[in-house]
Amino acid sequence: MKFIPEQMETKSVYKLLTGAVVPRPIAWVSTMSSQGTLNLSPFSFFTVASRQPPMLCISIGPGVGEREGTVKDTLVNIREGGEFVINVVPSALGNQMQKTSENHAPDVNEFSVAGLTPLDSDIVLPKRVKEAPINMECKLDRIIELGTDNLIIGEMVMYHIKEEYYLGNEKVNFEKMKPLGRFAGNYSESKDFYTLPITK
């Protein structure tokens, strides 16, 4: 079968893409509005952009549902403040993450909605998620408009990891963390790890 994107609706192409580019890691992005309101929202268009300097990137699309046609609060806050924190989502915090993915008014504190604890960052103003095993403080490098979306590239200026998730030699204990990933509209728990080639 073949599909020509320009002959399809955006939603249909999106479904094909998110069903093929899997599993996708989730960036649980915390920001702060110019009024000081805490914001927290997950994004699965997320990856490492550069190793030196260390940079991460997330892609943020337009609002959906009842907020269709609007700009997402995360993007507004990053544009205004130039700072954000990417928190890693373990499977144990899946329900809390889901609550922060819902549409909320700009003056709503998603930390409170999800019952999470905001923790001061060392360098940037946005708070970290205390319950998350890893937090990466970022300063905005640039925003690139790509079609309907915005690619946000930020330099990681501070890396936090809870001691129980650190194995030493800069290695993370994935088996303990069980990070969530995204498969189309579903989620996956990363828990089975192996080295190729697989032998029987």
Rank of each mutant, 00 (worst) to 15 (best):
G181C: 03
I60D: 00
N109S: 04
G81N: 09
K171H: 13
P53S: 11
S50I: 03
V88L: 14
G61A: 04
Q98G: 10
E68Q: 14
S121P: 08
F193Q: 08
K130A: 11
G36L: 01
T195V: 14
L116G: 08
R24W: 10
G115F: 00
F45A: 09
P133E: 05
T10D: 14
K178H: 11
L40G: 06
Y166I: 03
K11V: 06
I123F: 05
G81P: 10
G181V: 12
Y159T: 14
L167F: 14
N103E: 12
P62I: 00
K176A: 13
G69F: 09
P126G: 06
Q7Y: 15
T10L: 15
I123V: 15
L196W: 09
E68H: 12
H104D: 12
N169W: 12
K178G: 11
K99W: 12
K178P: 02
G154N: 01
I144V: 11
V64M: 09
I161Q: 05
P179C: 00
V113I: 05
L16F: 07
V89W: 10
I123S: 10
F111C: 13
D107P: 12
D73P: 07
T18Y: 01
K99R: 13
P23E: 06
E189G: 12
D73W: 00
Y187D: 10
E110A: 08
K2A: 09
P62W: 02
I58C: 10
V124K: 01
A105G: 11
V76T: 05
D141K: 15
